[in-house]
Design a protein around this nucleic acid. Structure first.
Lengths: 142, 142
DNA sequence: CAGAATCCCAGCCGATACTG
DNA sequence: CAGTATCGGCTGGGATTCTG
């Protein structure tokens, strides 16, 4: 019981690092957006679906369940005529949302510079790549 | 494999939000770990591979190239006998690393609470679901 | 040593259909 | 309204092989 899990060599880094936990949670396509809505106010399922244009029921439900399981959002069901369910962010979820917000700010502050770097990268000659190619091919780098 | 730029109406939310940019960059399996190594000191390819136990050459090279393209790391090649290549984090990359570090701290600070939430979630009765009856479950009301 | 190219599987995610 | 279940495409990513 007191024994700690010794990690396998292959997955060691990932599994042992708590950072994995966060990235597995927010790394997907919708979590951050959902959090972004819920941090403002509690929201019902379909309302959420409406706000996150493009999300499927499956992914919305799946992501919400994951968030709920991790204690980041709560689910409250009301026994109204057509069932009503409201999702709300938890205090724990709010603290996460803050860190995520920092990331979003970073993106907004630096998107210009990143875009510039990309353009610069894409524009360069790709030196030291096949010089005597079989066919005359300028091979545009990815 | 080829990177195609294609606008789709379904991805509008994602594409328009700069937050997507960050998550697309750090949401993968290795970026954060690579950044974690490079933020301490410049590192060669195989040294990097050694530190990130479990990464494949493909993913390491791919991820490094993406980081380089986004201006987060630099690549310097030395014309030594067996070629030597050193990767280093850029100032821009360092600012990102700071935000990522915040996320990592969040994870470390809250992993206990998340784990507890998960256990609590997994232990609850799940009303109106068929019982598989493999072993008696003490339904803890929540 | 550094990296590109290929094969292939697991999982994410969307579209659709069904339930309560 | 609020989900769940299933099928299928796409892609992330690991193992392997080849080059300079």
């Amino acid at each position: 019981m007191a024994a700690m899990k010794k990690e396998r060599k292959g997955d060691a880094y990932s599994a042992s690092c708590p950072a994995r936990l966060v990235l597995d949670q927010i790394g997907d396509k919708w979590t951050v957006l959902i959090l972004g809505v819920l941090v403002k106010q509690p929201t019902r399922f379909n309302e959420l679906k409406r706000r996150l244009q493009g999300v499927s029921q499956k992914m919305l439900g799946q992501t919400l369940k994951k968030l709920e399981r991790n204690g980041l959002v709560t689910r409250r069901a009301f026994a109204t005529v057509p069932v009503t369910v409201e999702y709300a962010i938890t205090p724990l979820g709010q603290t996460l949302a803050v860190s995520v917000e920092a990331l979003r700010r970073w993106a907004e502050d630096n998107i210009r510079e990143v875009t510039r770097a990309q353009a610069s990268f894409d524009a360069r000659p790709v030196a030291s790549l096949q010089v005597n190619a079989s066919s005359s091919d300028a091979g545009r780098g990815q």
